[in-house]
Amino acid sequence: MALCVMMFLLVIPASLAQEDMDDKVFLFPKDKHTDHVSLTPNITKPLEKFSVCLYFFRDFLRNLNLFSLASPGTGNTFYFADSSSTNTVHMNQDSALFRTNMEPYEWKHACVTWNSDTGVVKLWVNGKLYPRRVCMKGSSIPAETSMVLGQKQDSFEKKSTTYPFVGEISDVHMWDYVLTPEEMLQALNKNAHGNIINWNSLLYEIKGDILVLPKSRCPYQITSKSYVDNGEDVDNGEDVDNGEDVDNGEDVDNGEDVDNGEDVDNGEDVDNGEDVDNGEDVDNGEDVDNGQGCL
């Protein structure tokens, strides 16, 4: 038994790590052409269909490479890139551009699917489907592949020197079939796990200064656009008056009681007849920032 265990350990290079990455991110902190994460996929036959989903968070406005797949004899068999106004899906010599106008400084969930039978490529961003494109109809992707996060691959296992990713990537999954809309929703809610790449059992190798960190958790975030789910503004320490003055410690009536007949204890919600959060926590168990900086 000891010999078997030792032989198994020798199969996996010491530089590789395999772990459950739930609640973690890869942080790409620098604009460095050598930084990337190599993934070891579970592929046993050529791919004629696939789906790739991931979350990413960036602030650079230029083009950034998110995910790439290369096979022997070809470079960039498939890669997915993001910029401030478009997303690019490249497959061999075909490229498809999607005008998405995705804002920086927000976590985004993106999924790309491809079906060789029709060549149809679909892009979903935050659960929204964009107009379809066609690439590599009737083709297939060899089982021997090199998969990378944060870079393109000019040839098999040779990384590009242009547009490295800067930011954070999380919840990467890949399947050998096209996800249905229902499965896409599950992936958006982090309830679906890939059978080629599984974030919850990820075999990877880090090259460069990339870090594995816990996801940022923010109970709230003070911004110029923080809203409660009922559509009313939350001033985060400023006056909340809905048209009436609230002095927080001084008499405030202007001829009327602030609470329309109810006690105002200057320590509880002042809602002018309604609770600001409708009786629930502001974030309802989710992040108030709607994807801005927190997962």
Rank of each mutant, 00 (worst) to 15 (best):
Ile43Pro: 00
Thr44Phe: 08
Lys45Met: 05
Lys45Thr: 10
Pro46His: 02
Pro46Val: 05
Pro46Ile: 10
Pro46Thr: 07
Pro46Gly: 10
Leu47Tyr: 06
Leu47Gln: 04
Glu48Phe: 13
Glu48Pro: 02
Glu48Trp: 10
Lys49Val: 12
Phe50Tyr: 14
Ser51Gly: 07
Ser51Tyr: 02
Ser51Val: 05
Val52Met: 06
Val52Ala: 00
Val52Tyr: 04
Val52Trp: 03
Val52Glu: 01
Cys53Ser: 04
Cys53Pro: 00
Cys53Asp: 00
Cys53Ala: 09
Cys53Leu: 01
Cys53Ile: 04
Tyr55Ile: 04
Tyr55Asn: 15
Tyr55Thr: 09
Phe56Asn: 07
Phe56Ile: 03
Phe56Val: 06
Phe56Trp: 09
Phe57Asp: 10
Phe57Ile: 02
Phe57Asn: 06
Phe57Lys: 13
Phe57Met: 10
Phe57Trp: 13
Arg58Gln: 09
Asp59Leu: 13
Phe60Trp: 08
Phe60Lys: 15
Leu61Val: 11
Leu61Ala: 05
Leu61Glu: 10
Leu61Ser: 08
Arg62Ile: 06
Arg62Phe: 12
Arg62Asp: 13
Arg62Gln: 10
Arg62Pro: 00
Asn63Pro: 05
Asn63His: 14
Asn63Arg: 14
Leu64Thr: 12
Leu64Ser: 15
Leu64Arg: 11
Leu64Cys: 15
Leu64Trp: 08
Asn65Thr: 14
Asn65Gln: 12
Leu66Gln: 00
Leu66Phe: 00
Phe67Glu: 01
Phe67Pro: 03
Phe67Met: 07
Phe67Lys: 08
Ser68Glu: 02
Ser68His: 05
Ser68Ile: 10
Ser68Lys: 03
Leu69Gly: 03
Leu69Ala: 07
Ala70Tyr: 08
Ala70Gly: 11
Ala70Glu: 01
Ala70Asn: 05
Ala70Asp: 06
Pro72Phe: 04
Gly73Tyr: 08
Gly73Ile: 06
Gly73Val: 13
Gly73Trp: 09
